[in-house]
Write a protein that binds this DNA or RNA. Sequence first.
DNA 1: ATAATGCCTATAAATTCTATAGACATTACA
DNA 2: TGTAATGTCTATAGAATTTATAGGCATTAT
Lengths: 153, 153
Amino acid sequence: MISKKTIYAFKALIHLAGTPAGQPVLIADLAKAENIPKKFLEFILLSLRKGGLLLSRIGKGGGYSLAVPAARISVGAIVRILEGDIAPVQCLSTTNYARCEECQDEATCGIRLTMADVNVALATVLDNLTLADMIERSDAERNKIQNVVDYNI
Amino acid sequence: MISKKTIYAFKALIHLAGTPAGQPVLIADLAKAENIPKKFLEFILLSLRKGGLLLSRIGKGGGYSLAVPAARISVGAIVRILEGDIAPVQCLSTTNYARCEECQDEATCGIRLTMADVNVALATVLDNLTLADMIERSDAERNKIQNVVDYNI
DNA sequence: ATAATGCCTATAAATTCTATAGACATTACA
DNA sequence: TGTAATGTCTATAGAATTTATAGGCATTAT
C-alpha cells in the first residue's frame, strides 16, 4: 500500500505537468488546488526536487516546475523518492539495505529468493509507467465517457 | 515493504511444511525454533487458520499443521491474510475498498488507472509463487553451494 | 480430574506516518 | 537599498499502525 505522501506527490506532479512550462507554481497555490496540507506538500516537493524531478525558484516570482518532461518521469522514480524504496523486504533493497535480524544465511533464504521475483516484477511495472501515462489514461477515460454522452445526445 | 508479521508467517509456514504430516507443532516450539515472540505468533497462526491455511488441534497433543499441501498455498494468499490486501491503493482493493477522500471522479483518476496495472502485476506474481517454491528455491541454492564445496574437495 | 494446549479480549510499547510551527535564505523589483 | 515574496531547513507534535505482552477461558487426551 503506497502512502498518502506518495499520492500527494502524484497529484502535485500531475498538476505541474498540466501547467505551461517556464511558469512556476507556488506551493501555496498547489496545496490549495490539490487539497494537500501546505507544510506537508512543502516537504514532498523538496524531496522531489532533491530527487531531480523538479526545479524550484526562490523569491518573488518563484515556485516549482517539472525538471524533466512528464514522459521521462517514471512512476518508479517517484515512489523511490517518497517511499525510500520499492523492495518488498529490506534485505533486497539497494538504496536502503538491511540484513534480516536473524537470517542464518541470506544466500539460501527462501523468503528472500522468492521476494526477489516480486521485486523484479514490481520494479519492471513501476519503471515502465510514467507521469505522462497517468495523464494520458485519465484523458482517455474522460474522452470515452464524453463520447458516450455525445452519442446519447 | 511487507511487515514483520508476514515474514513471521512465512517462517512459520515453512517450518510447518517441513514437519511430517499429522504431527502437529506447538506454538511454543515454533516460536522458539523460529525466534518469533510467542504471543505474536499465536495471533499470526490464528489468522492463518481462519484463512484456511492451517489446521489446529486444541488440548493435550494439540498444535498446528498445514491444512493444504505447500504447493497449493500461494504467497499471495499468505500476504492477503496477514496484510489484509495486496492493492497499492485502497480504492483498488476488493476486500478492503475505500474511496479516496477527495477523488473527484474515480473512473477517470489517472493514479488509480495506473495503479491498476501495478495491482495486476503484483497479484500475478504473488499468486503464482507458492510456499513450496520458497522451500524448493532455498534447497536448490543450498545444493548449488554444497556442490561447489564438493567440487573444491 | 487434571494437565496440556489453543482461543480470545484487552492493552501497552514502539515505530512510522502525517502534519504543523517558525526562523532563515534568496530573489525580484520598486 | 529596502522590502515583500518566496522556497529551505530544523524541530517537534499528533495520529495511526505495527509489534508485542498479559491473563483468563475453552477444549481435549489421558
